[in-house]
Design a protein around this nucleic acid. Structure first.
Length: 480
DNA sequence: TGAAATGTTGGGGCG
DNA sequence: ACGCCCCAACATTTC
């Protein structure tokens, strides 16, 4: 007579190592039902985007394989998670439900419902593990949540060191054989007609092993120069861990300890490692912000911006999405995003600033596009970062800080590697004209085979005009 | 995790 | 030799 099974509910924590709910399930000695529930039906603005669906498919495939290798079996179902779990628990007489705490409003709601509806019949246990620091662990002197990053991060760093991560269990007891689920393919997560995922396949390896491959490669090479090189989009100076962290294929605690471990024996990694962990800190900050301000993805954190005179300009928004603004750095970024599902962070700031300030398109529209196209699309990071760029967020860049896309290109892509890669029609322009083809001489354009307005668009707006217009729009907020 | 405008300074050309 | 102007180069302020 085997014990009643434990349901191990997976959601954006698709790993076996450093996984407290899994460890507890193994320790219970009971059969384990690793469960993933795709909720595609519940209406809501944050249904998974296309790139996220692609990643999810492959991450689930990797998780299923990793579980099988240890004797387990992933069970996939679809529908409202609460209803699915209730049904499954009834089917197999489960004794318990273990899962990681989530921080989005929808996840928090779901957890409350689970407790209310199933708490009497099941042992419902929630674990921490998707963040370094729980929202309740850090508060300002006044007892409020932090609204400024630097003191937030200082408070995080003053806490005791995060626990050392635990290894993956060697074996786990399989679910009862009568428990069935869907095939991964039944979820229809992959793009079909057309299959636009070629660039994603070429650039990414979803899953726990792929996450460690990235982290290891980063710590072996790029972390030493990270503080400066992370700003160069043409240089492989960043970790590219963001999608792996979003899907929980690696935990921030594992990243933390890997970096600290390296720093302990290798002084050259001190500065870069700290700068890198600070970026992990921004992730924590955004997750905390969303926890405390659930309307972060829809409403400006700074309420004054509710009256900002945004423009509805579908043509300009379309040109931005397609990478046809006439500013090479902006266009390179948007094309990198479309092709690979990712964009270098420096360029994310520039393209976002361009949309919000040069075009005056609401930041929510940009957020929507990123949500659909980024493999690391994350509700908290996306909302926090767009609000930061737009100037209405917590600890935001002041609205009047307007990036000049030409200067940003000359400064961070001086040799043009990045622009030439993603905007090949400009490849033959000399460095001095590459970031401003509209200002190049006729001879230079002709020599490079570029006809403005034919091979490459003229600028959507002129920078000086757009800058003045954005500042004028901001001025209306002060009057209001 | 800016950029542009404005102010200041100091070297050098020139009458 | 001297004052004047120009204008980088740098600093400060403003948006």
């Amino acid at each position: 007579m085997s014990a009643a099974p434990v349901i191990l509910w997976y959601r954006d924590d698709f790993r076996l190592s450093d996984h407290a709910p899994l460890r507890a399930a193994v320790a219970s000695g009971a059969p384990i039902i690793p469960l993933y529930v795709l909720d595609d039906e519940t209406p809501g603005p944050w249904r998974l985007g296309g790139a996220s669906r692609w990643w999810l498919h492959h991450s689930l495939a990797a998780l299923a394989a990793d579980l099988s290798a240890r004797g387990g079996r992933l069970v996939i179902r679809r529908g409202d998670a609460c209803a699915v779990i209730r049904q499954l628990a009834r089917e197999c007489q489960a004794q318990a439900l273990y899962f990681h705490r989530g921080y989005t409003p929808a996840e928090a709601d779901l957890e409350r419902r689970l407790w209310r509806e199933l708490g009497d019949s099941l042992e419902v246990r929630r674990f921490r593990g998707r963040l370094l620091v729980e929202p309740e662990q850090v508060k300002t002197g006044a007892g409020e949540p932090f609204k400024v990053f630097t003191p937030f991060w200082r408070a995080c760093l003053s806490l005791p060191e995060p626990e050392a991560p635990a290894p993956a269990p060697e074996r786990l007891a399989p679910p009862p054989p009568e428990v069935t689920g869907l095939d991964l393919d039944d979820l229809a997560l992959l793009p079909r007609t057309p299959d636009w995922a070629g660039g994603l396949r070429d650039n990414w390896r979803p899953g726990e092993a792929g996450a460690w491959e990235r982290l290891t490669a980063f710590l072996d090479a790029a972390v030493v120069g990270y503080a400066a090189d992370r700003d160069l989009p043409g240089h492989p100076g960043t970790s590219r861990l963001s999608p792996h962290l979003h899907f929980g294929e690696i935990s921030p605690r594992q990243v933390w300890h890997a970096v600290r471990g390296l720093q302990a024996g290798y002084a050259a990694a001190t500065k870069g490692g700290d700068a890198f962990l600070r970026e992990v800190g921004w992730r924590e900050f955004c997750q905390h912000l969303l926890h405390h301000w659930p309307r972060l993805p829809t409403e400006p954190f700074n309420p004054r911006f509710a009256h900002f005179p945004w423009r509805e300009d579908e043509a300009a928004f379309g040109a931005w999405r397609r990478g046809q603004t006439g500013y090479p750095l902006v266009d390179a970024g948007m094309r990198e995003l479309w092709h690979t599902g990712w964009m270098h962070n420096r360029v994310r700031m520039v393209v976002a600033s361009f949309l919000v300030k040069h075009l005056l398109v609401p930041w929510q529209r940009g957020q929507d596009w990123f949500w659909d196209t980024l493999v690391d699309a994350d509700l908290a990071n996306n909302a926090g970062s767009w609000q930061w760029v737009a100037g209405c967020g917590a600890d935001a860049a002041p609205y009047f800080r307007i990036f000049n896309p030409v200067l940003q290109g000359q400064k961070f892509d001086a040799r043009g590697d990045y622009v030439r890669r993603w905007v090949p029609e400009l490849r033959r322009l000399p460095d001095r004209d590459l970031h401003a083809p509209f200002a190049a001489g006729q001879a230079s354009l002709a020599a490079a085979g570029v006809r403005l307005g034919v091979d490459y668009p003229a600028p959507l707006v002129e920078h000086d005009f757009a800058r003045q217009r954005a500042l004028a729009a901001l001025a209306t907020l002060r009057e209001a």
